[in-house]
């Protein structure tokens, strides 16, 4: 493993798109899958460069008020709340600035939020970004896409085929 440099792979210039994408993948993937892939990845990291984390905000469950829009496109209104669990960790690095990793994950799974925050920090470092994207984020995104595609095919089978009844001429 290379020593992480001080640049952040996510958004050194305010370009947040890649980070938003991996945070979304980590939030939506089943906790068990994130854990399995993360464990496998971290086991492959040499002890000498094993990441050291400090918890800045312990995993904490709270609420997000979900908003809708009147008529689907009109003025916003408060529809109801959902549970969410957040966590912030700091990745300590020798000879480089510490990196904060954040997670906000629907539901009440503290372990999922903690792990996602750690992965968010690692994904911002040059050393871990590439390998983690390949070993974890991309496979999780692919699995989600496969689940969705399978469901869309089943739902597609319930699409109505209208046909017109033609009356006889005579």
């Amino acid at each position: 493993m290379t020593t992480p440099s001080s640049t952040n792979a996510g958004s050194p210039t305010g370009e947040d798109a890649p980070r938003k994408q991996w945070m979304a993948v980590l939030a939506k993937a089943p906790a068990k899958r994130v854990e399995a892939l993360a464990t496998a990845y971290l086991e492959g990291v040499a002890d000498a460069v094993a990441p050291r984390f400090r918890v800045l905000r312990r995993p904490e469950t709270g609420l997000v008020m979900v908003r809708g829009r009147a008529g689907g496109t009109g003025d916003p209104f408060n529809m109801g709340e959902m549970t969410v669990t957040r966590c912030t960790v700091v990745l300590e690095r020798d000879g480089a600035a510490a990196v904060a990793g954040h997670a906000y994950i629907a539901g009440r799974d503290r372990a999922h939020a903690t792990l996602a925050a750690k992965l968010d920090a690692l994904l911002q470092t040059d050393g871990h970004h590439g390998p983690l994207m390949a070993a974890l984020v991309e496979p999780l995104a692919r699995e989600a896409e496969e689940r969705r595609a399978a469901r869309r095919r089943r739902v597609g089978a319930t699409k109505v085929d209208f046909f017109t009844l033609v009356r006889g001429e005579d």
Binding site: N8, G10, P12, L56, T88, A97, A98
Partner: peptide, 15 residues
Amino acid sequence: VSAAMIEPPAEGFSD
């Protein structure tokens, strides 16, 4: 954006 990432804020309440 990057500020929060590079230098984390001081710690708050422990609980």
